[in-house]
Amino acid sequence: MSHSPIQPTILSRPVYGELEPRSGSQHLFVADAEGGEAILDMARAAPEGFFDKAHIIFIPKETGQSLVARLESLKPAQLHIAPSYSAVVPRLHRVLSSAHMGLQLYLSGTEGLMGQAMLEATNQGIPHTAIQTEHRGSLCRRVQCVHCKGITEDVTMDPFQCSHCGLHLFVRDHYSRRMAAFQGVCVDAENPGDIPEPVERFP
């Protein structure tokens, strides 16, 4: 049973599963916030010695220190606590670029985190269908403004104001893996100034 309320809508909208231990030569985890709990839950089903070959990259966000000690107790070969996804990118790039056949990749947490890490992995030749994902925590979305092309992170309201060009955008379910983002489209194009009251659709 998934812990996520995300349901399939249109066919470009990603859906997520539940992490499960697979056999592999190396296990790479990338998680943010409550995504750390998905790793802990999966660990219960993991065979002895599983984490000897594991590298966990964790971005606590608002979970602060609450999950860090429990992740340490899994005794992964490497545990890297990072302040943000963008701070993680060089490390992730380095690890993926030297990865061998048999690497298992596990992503958990917000859609923005999973989408971006997946993009990094697919750019390094890992097919997206071979990557495990589990959504946990906030429903916030990473949204690309179709007009100025700027991406706004952690969008919770719909409509919202583009953090780059300032247009008021409604958030579609149409999703691009290549952008790791949903599409935002001007909400008042046909009636300038007629902007609906924002609703917290992605708490």
Binding site: I10, L11, S12, R13, Q144, R172, D173, S176, R177, R178
Partner: peptide
């Protein structure tokens, strides 16, 4: 948008 849809498969780009 080609820029948004590039790389998608037949079902994904027709999703909306």
């Amino acid at each position: 948008s080609l820029d948004f849809d590039i790389g998608m498969n037949f079902f994904e780009w027709h999703a909306p």
